[in-house]
Structures are given as structure tokens and as C-alpha cells.
């Protein structure tokens, strides 16, 4: 069983890759504005069935963002002694933010 440090590291990478792929898709999506298929595509992504994907995307984005801030703090040489707390906080803040955002979206 890898430790939380390692899990955080791999999650950061995986979420990063997913976000990069998402970004490419997103850009591709936007180019359809010109070709005119945009309005039909936007209907699909705005549908209720698509919501779980959006929620996943939020989770991934939030985690990557929060963990990124944690890493930046450490990389400036700060709060090393509190690294464990910061690590736990990362997961807690991610969860809380996600729940709040998801609540807003779903309701």
C-alpha cells in the first residue's frame, strides 16, 4: 500500500493528464462554432445524462488546483514541517469544495 504522499503524487499526474486531454477536447469543441455543429453538440453536453462527467471534471480540476497550491507553497520552501497537515488539508479542502460546487450545480 503506497503512502498518502505517493498517492497524492500519482493523483496529481493523472488529473493533470486528464485535464490536458480535456483541454484539447474543449478547444476542438470550440472550433465547431465556425462549422456550425456547435449547437447540436452543446445540447448533448448540457443534458442531464452528462452531469456525472461534469462532476468528475470538477473533482479532477479542484484536486489538481488545490494540490498545485500546496506544491507551490512547499516549493518556495515554506511550511515543510507542516507537510503532513497540508497534505491532509488538500484532500479535505478538495472534498469540501467539490461537495459545495456539486450541490450548487445539481440543485
Amino acid at each position: 500500500m503506497p503512502s498518502l504522499n505517493t498517492i497524492a503524487f500519482y493523483l496529481h499526474r493523472i488529473t493533470g493528464v486528464i485535464l490536458a486531454i480535456y483541454l484539447c477536447m474543449h478547444l476542438g469543441f470550440l472550433t465547431t462554432v465556425k462549422t456550425g455543429e456547435y449547437s447540436s453538440l452543446i445540447k448533448v453536453t448540457l443534458s442531464r445524462q452528462f452531469l456525472p462527467f461534469d462532476l468528475m471534471l470538477f473533482l479532477i480540476g479542484i484536486y489538481h488546483g488545490v494540490n498545485g497550491i500546496r506544491l507551490i507553497i512547499h516549493e518556495f520552501g515554506f511550511l515543510y514541517r507542516h507537510r503532513k497537515i497540508l497534505l491532509y488539508l488538500t484532500f479535505i479542502i478538495t472534498a469540501v469544495l467539490w461537495v459545495v460546487v456539486a450541490w450548487e450545480v445539481v440543485m
Binding site: 504522499n5 496529481h12 506544491l71 512547499h74 516549493e75 518556495f76 520552501g77 515543510y80
Partner: peptide, 24 residues
């Protein structure tokens, strides 16, 4: 990538992860 696993396992408790960040 600041995984800080090195600091966890160092048998002499040298905290390499901290040193790397300070040096950065």
C-alpha cells in the same frame, strides 16, 4: 515533485525533501 517520500524513509532523518525546496 515534492512527494517527500525520501524524508519518510531516510534512516538518518535528514529530510531531503526540505533541503531540495530550500535549495530551489
Amino acid at each position: 515533485h515534492f512527494v517527500a517520500e525520501c524524508s519518510e524513509v531516510c534512516p538518518k532523518d535528514l529530510n531531503p525533501a526540505e533541503v531540495i525546496q530550500k535549495l530551489r
